[in-house]
Nucleic acid binder design. Structure first.
Lengths: 331, 331
DNA sequence: TTGAAAGCGCTAACAT
DNA sequence: ATGTTAGCGCTTTCAA
């Protein structure tokens, strides 16, 4: 029923090998033969079976991508970067959501390994020993993106979160404010930690003492930003500005303040993180840290192709530049 | 190097067939044997090769999903619905972006067919004859989601766009306004057409004559909403309200108006479409049509599993309910 | 309940 | 430049 390479060979009076050669663009085929084979391929409507090819060649031209949640604007952008570069290099991408659940992550890695992916792109919480072991259990290359590696063994693409948080906080502090709140993410990932460290370092540098009340946590969602905003604005000693560790939360903070009748940035300055499209889809527009999500995905995928081709890789840990954009949510 | 089913068989003193049976949970295995095999599988760290399995069984437990752009909030939500149900039924998902480019779509379908996916989920512009032919060239089931099928042959999951647009427009018209603008998408897809038809029908029903100036087009992006807003507000005879065919554009319209000093909804009412998360992440919050994106994806994937299992399917064309949510962008 | 053996459709030596 | 052939690792009859 389905036409195979063998059918084409018979019909074109050549061997399977020759058909295989023309399908794979092997130059060692006489032009006349190539033409003949190509025509019968066309006639028979032959479509190469990638599974059979994968079994024989031990290459699937498929990569696995494990992502916390594709419906998050941040990760969706990252995924787009990955997929574009994957396509460019003729790879397909199996995408799975992990919800940052470690068991699920481990299980997904295993499933992808069973499918014989040629490489894995991992995004999530931290890479633990368990992850590293799971990765090692097969010999396919792995690159992590926007994710920290506790074991410090896996190639990665990130920005410098500590520095970014430091700069954001310093920027706010530079206005002679002292009361700067910080809304971090709930999860105790390294990235979160690094942002917090950057915040602390900035305070220290300006000799501002830490006020624990000004440290809140959210889950990166808009609603948790709204909540945080409420908490901030109910304080006796309200902060002058707040550095929020994701844009979506920052929008929540802005609207929470506005809903209570406060003005941003007059009554409260708000500074975000990521520069997702949301940052310009709010009034006032959001000052934030530019984290090049698409590029992180693209660079990570590019790096993975290098490992898959066994090319030399100059830097195993890529740190992409970040920067501040000032918009209207700060003065 | 890699351990195969054969290694396990030898080590456990059974045949490959038996190992295969325990791996696949075939009941016809004596418990003792099963235990023995399971243990050596554990010891050897055997991991089944899904590619070999796929070749032998002609099933890959992988589906292909073709989506215009995963970084769009709308499609990302849809994709999440698909993936969740796919995972539930033990399928993996190959995800590719088409940018609604027909050639790319056709090519992606072909690539997925080569990979022997067990089914295809398609989202995009319209399904044309060419698409249908491409789909037919392999015998895997296809379901389209949030996409219209010109050929009317392919199972699909949608809402009733015409009715939704009719209701939205009627809602606006119900306030004794007559000047209702409509911002459609640029592409000449059936869905766009249907929304336009719904808009027209509502006007007609209220005996309001169509003013061509009030029909604008955007590309579903925030910026095109901003532009449309400018155009609307520069008119001599400004509209009272505007029905925008995507939430993201609607945010653009709201902010465009606000940036010019107009008030929403006092000076201009704005009504969206989709009810993406954006609808509540703006001030005023956006009245819109609730299109259950996650559910459309989930139902489409569920439908696909039925076809893949050759189950009976009662309805080939699923139309999910939609509804209006009134929020603060309308009075 | 278990085993033997024939493929699944292709690639990759190796030979010619 | 082309053909022959032995797998790749598994599932699936068919026998026993």
């Amino acid at each position: 029923m389905t036409v195979t390479i063998y059918d084409v060979a018979r019909e074109a009076n050549v061997s399977m090998a020759t058909v295989s050669r023309v399908v794979n663009g092997n130059p060692n085929v006489k032009p006349v033969t190539r033409k003949k084979v190509s025509r019968t391929i066309e006639e028979l409507g032959y479509r190469p079976n990638a599974v059979a090819r994968g079994l024989a060649s031990k290459k699937t031209t498929t990569v696995g991508a494990i992502i916390p949640d594709i419906s998050s604007i941040f990760f969706a952008e990252l995924a787009r970067g990955i997929e574009d570069i994957a396509t460019m290099y003729k790879y397909n991408m199996i995408l799975s959501n992990s919800d940052q659940n470690k068991d699920k992550e481990l299980q997904l890695i295993n499933a992808m390994l069973e499918k014989q992916v040629d490489g894995i792109l991992f995004m999530g919480g931290d890479i633990t020993e368990d992850h590293a072991n799971q990765f090692e259990s097969a010999s396919v290359p792995v690159v992590v993106a926007a994710t920290q590696d506790e074991t410090n063994t896996i190639p990665s693409v990130n920005i410098d979160y500590e520095a970014a948080a430091f700069e954001a906080t310093s920027y706010l502090l530079g206005k002679e404010y002292e009361k700067i709140a910080f809304i971090s993410g709930v999860d105790d990932t390294l990235i979160n930690q690094q942002k917090y460290n950057g915040y602390l370092r900035a305070l220290k540098e300006k000799n501002v003492s830490l006020n624990d009340d000004y440290i809140l946590t959210g889950d990166y969602s808009y609603d948790s930003g709204l909540d945080a905003s409420d908490q901030l604005l109910q304080m006796e000693d309200k902060p002058d500005a707040v550095f929020v560790s994701s844009d979506e939360m920052a929008l929540g903070v802005i609207h929470g303040a506005q809903d209570k009748g406060y003005q941003v940035p007059q009554d409260l300055e708000v500074f975000g993180f990521d520069n997702t499209r949301l940052a310009t889809m709010v009034r006032p527009t959001l000052s934030t840290i530019v984290q090049p999500m698409y590029d992180i995905g693209a660079v990570a995928m590019r790096l993975l192709t290098k490992y898959m081709n066994k090319e030399e890789v100059e830097e195993k840990k890529v740190v992409l530049p970040h920067r501040i954009v000032e918009r209207d949510s700060t003065k």
